[in-house]
Amino acid sequence: MKDATLASSAVFDAEEGFDAFEKLFGVTKGKRRNHTKGFCVEGIFAPVDPRVRTYSSSPIFSGTSTVVARVSHKGGKANPRDDQYGLLGMGLEITTANGDLHVIGMNTEHFFPVATSRDFIELLQAKAAGPDATKAFAAQHPEFRAYKNYHEALDKTLRPYEGTTFNSLNTFYLVDAEGKKSAMRFSFQPSGEQEIVVDTHADFFLENMQKNINEGSVSWDMIVTLANPDDAILDPSKQWSGDHVTITAGRFTAQNAMPESDGQCDRLNFDPMVLSEGFAPSEDPMLRARSMIYALGAVKRLSEKD
């Protein structure tokens, strides 16, 4: 595989990264510093296409698992409006029948704005410093300019969580029973047409999902995209293009949706490095960075609740 990522020149500092989030968004005590507003979703994950078992021995592809999920707005604002377009996120903690855990964290972005954890910290710091600093950062980082241009051109139609596609951004490995690894990225795409079915207002997303669940099926298909030999698997700022082998590996079906105060998701840490047997993290250093900053954030916000 082609590694297009230059090694980061500095060791990732979780404290510095966490501080950058707080400077950019402020602090809502007891809440996540990023993806601050959200609610819980509970349901099941079941395998769909058995071809995925050729590549992975994971138990999430061999039986039905339970899921505790959280859907959210990206960013650290305490209460962004549901009736205005914005980037969204979804995290899942999947528990298999044999008690194995598999954690997934996704966003609606198609790829990451920068290639390394050091660049990500500096981007957050530049945004906190203001427009001039952000422009100066963009001038030095063509990958950030490409990210902005691509995502600004996307359709900005307002969609509820259940009508939205979420993407892994980082690369992972599927691992078969013999230990062979296959690089892949994945997305969770709505299984059907799920639309806005209630009157829109600043906080309508939960009500909308509850109504869609009550009136029919709310689900997302896990679409696995296998890497081609020339794909940049260790650089999350590089989008894969061209034809790829894809597999509809599984389906997450929502059965209930509730506020964080009534659900199980608030205290969860959606660490993307927690993987079931049959998966492995890639060597992408951004995965380690995410894991470290999520862990620090979980400790801080949960201590604020006590």
Rank of each mutant, 00 (worst) to 15 (best):
M1G: 10
K2H: 15
D3H: 10
T5S: 14
A10N: 07
V11R: 13
F12E: 02
E15Y: 13
F21H: 12
V27S: 09
T28W: 03
K31H: 15
H35S: 13
H35F: 07
G38Y: 05
F39H: 08
E42I: 05
F45Q: 14
V52H: 03
V52I: 15
R53W: 03
F61G: 00
V67C: 09
V68H: 02
A69C: 01
V71H: 03
V71N: 01
H73R: 14
G75P: 04
K77A: 13
N79T: 15
N79H: 15
P80K: 07
R81T: 03
Y85A: 14
L88E: 11
L88F: 04
G89N: 06
M90L: 14
G91M: 12
T95I: 14
A97P: 05
N98G: 13
N98P: 00
H102F: 04
G105I: 06
M106V: 11
N107E: 15
N107M: 08
T108N: 12
E109L: 05
H110C: 02
R118I: 04
F120T: 00
E122A: 13
L123E: 02
Q125A: 14
A126C: 13
K127F: 04
P131K: 13
D132W: 00
A136P: 00
F137T: 00
A138R: 05
A139V: 06
P142I: 11
N149R: 08
Y150D: 14
H151Y: 10
D155T: 07
K156N: 09
R159M: 13
R159Y: 10
E162K: 11
G163W: 08
F166G: 00
N167V: 08
L169H: 02
N170R: 02
A177F: 07
G179F: 09
M184T: 05
M184F: 15
S187Y: 01
S187A: 15
S187I: 06
Q189E: 15
S191L: 02
S191H: 13
G192A: 14
E193C: 00
E195G: 04
I196F: 05
I196S: 03
V197R: 07
T200F: 06
H201C: 11
H201W: 11
F204N: 00
L206A: 10
L206E: 07
E207L: 12
K211W: 05
N214C: 02
E215C: 07
G216Y: 10
V218G: 12
S219W: 02
S219N: 10
D221A: 08
I223Q: 07
A227M: 08
A227T: 07
D230P: 00
D231K: 03
L234F: 04
D235S: 10
S237F: 06
K238C: 13
G242R: 01
T248H: 14
T248W: 05
F252V: 11
Q255A: 01
Q255K: 12
Q255V: 05
N256Q: 14
A257C: 11
E260K: 00
R267K: 11
L268W: 08
F270Y: 15
V274C: 01
V274G: 02
L275E: 04
S276I: 09
G278C: 09
F279K: 09
A280N: 05
P281M: 09
M286G: 05
R288W: 04
A289W: 03
S291K: 01
I293H: 03
Y294F: 13
A295D: 09
A295M: 01
A298E: 13
R301M: 08
L302D: 14
D306T: 05
